[in-house]
Simulated scan of single mutants.
Amino acid sequence: MSRTMEWAARPEHLGGIPRKLLIAIVGTFAKTVSSFLNTTSVHNADTLLHLVRSRPRRVPLITVSNHMSTVDDPAMWGFKGFPIFDTQSARWVLAAEDICFRNALYSYIFRVGKCIPITRGGGIYQEHMNEALERLNDGEWLHTFPEGKVNQEEAPIRRLKWGTASLIARAHITPIVLPIIHHGFHEVMPEKYMFGRRPPLPLWNKKIDIIIGDPIELDLPAMRQKAISQSRSESFPIVGWPSTCDGLDEAAQRCFYSTISEQIHAAMERLRCFGKKLVKS
């Protein structure tokens, strides 16, 4: 399978000018939504800023968050003090192919904007997941919405898809994994506003809260060994995943990715509960 407009996602495409222009436009939009039209408060912003700007060289960063609206990314990066206009440190993000890559124009814009198309239901070994893995192996920052789709309900974090866990497990250098929970974007861009549809533009005078956690401690070697042992007594439907470079068969991978996802889910849910208390206080 070929990669959608991979050439447009390269930093050297047309000397980097399209990316600089697009990041400036998108950054202005994000700043406008989060810092001017609405009131945004951020808890523990310094942790994210440090990891974006000053993490060890070649160490990748994965941020994971809940998904409350179609403007979460880029608007969640538009808070005061965030380097939204820096093309080099800007995040890569997994984006739904059926929404963001519906035609050639959309595909070009999102590709230039450091988005990687993901086919929902296409599995964790689809070609664009391999591209995301390459970006991590380059030491880049990748943002994912591991719930897999927008959820505007005031409810616990949904079960996470295994794609993020598989990237963490397969990266050459274990990424720093940072959980983020936000609240308020569902009011900025409600799914059912007029005649059951989204508003044409983001709404204003809303309160947005962004709660940034601390990096999740993942003991991958111990989790890997536990997965190998557990897989011997578990029964999974086999779909033909390739063995990993360290020899994990499909059953062991399923246990491994499930364990990683559960730990990320627990961290996100703790952060969500902390955020609810923080917002009320």
Score class of each variant (00 low, 15 high):
72 D>N: 02
73 D>V: 03
73 D>Q: 01
74 P>C: 00
76 M>F: 04
78 G>A: 00
79 F>T: 00
79 F>N: 01
81 G>C: 02
81 G>I: 00
82 F>M: 04
83 P>V: 03
86 D>T: 01
86 D>V: 03
86 D>L: 02
89 S>I: 13
90 A>K: 05
90 A>Q: 07
90 A>C: 05
90 A>D: 10
91 R>H: 12
92 W>R: 04
92 W>F: 14
94 L>F: 08
96 A>T: 04
97 E>C: 04
98 D>S: 15
101 F>N: 00
101 F>R: 00
102 R>M: 10
103 N>L: 09
104 A>P: 07
108 Y>N: 12
108 Y>V: 07
109 I>Y: 09
109 I>A: 09
110 F>Y: 14
112 V>W: 04
112 V>N: 07
112 V>T: 13
113 G>E: 01
114 K>A: 08
115 C>W: 02
115 C>E: 02
116 I>Y: 09
117 P>S: 06
117 P>V: 02
118 I>A: 01
118 I>C: 02
120 R>G: 03
121 G>V: 05
121 G>E: 04
124 I>E: 03
127 E>Y: 04
128 H>D: 10
132 A>P: 01
136 L>Y: 13
136 L>I: 11
137 N>W: 13
137 N>V: 09
139 G>F: 12
140 E>C: 14
140 E>S: 15
141 W>K: 11
143 H>C: 10
144 T>E: 12
147 E>F: 09
148 G>K: 06
150 V>L: 08
150 V>A: 05
152 Q>A: 07
153 E>G: 04
154 E>V: 08
156 P>G: 08
157 I>D: 02
159 R>L: 03
159 R>M: 07
160 L>M: 05
160 L>A: 00
161 K>R: 05
161 K>Y: 02
162 W>P: 05
162 W>L: 07
165 A>G: 05
167 L>D: 01
168 I>T: 08
168 I>F: 03
168 I>D: 06
172 H>D: 14
172 H>N: 15
175 P>R: 12
175 P>F: 10
176 I>R: 14
176 I>Y: 14
177 V>A: 09
180 I>Y: 12
183 H>K: 15
185 F>A: 01
186 H>C: 10
189 M>F: 03
192 K>N: 06
192 K>F: 08
193 Y>C: 06
194 M>V: 12
195 F>S: 04
195 F>D: 06
195 F>W: 13
197 R>I: 00
197 R>C: 03
198 R>L: 03
199 P>A: 01
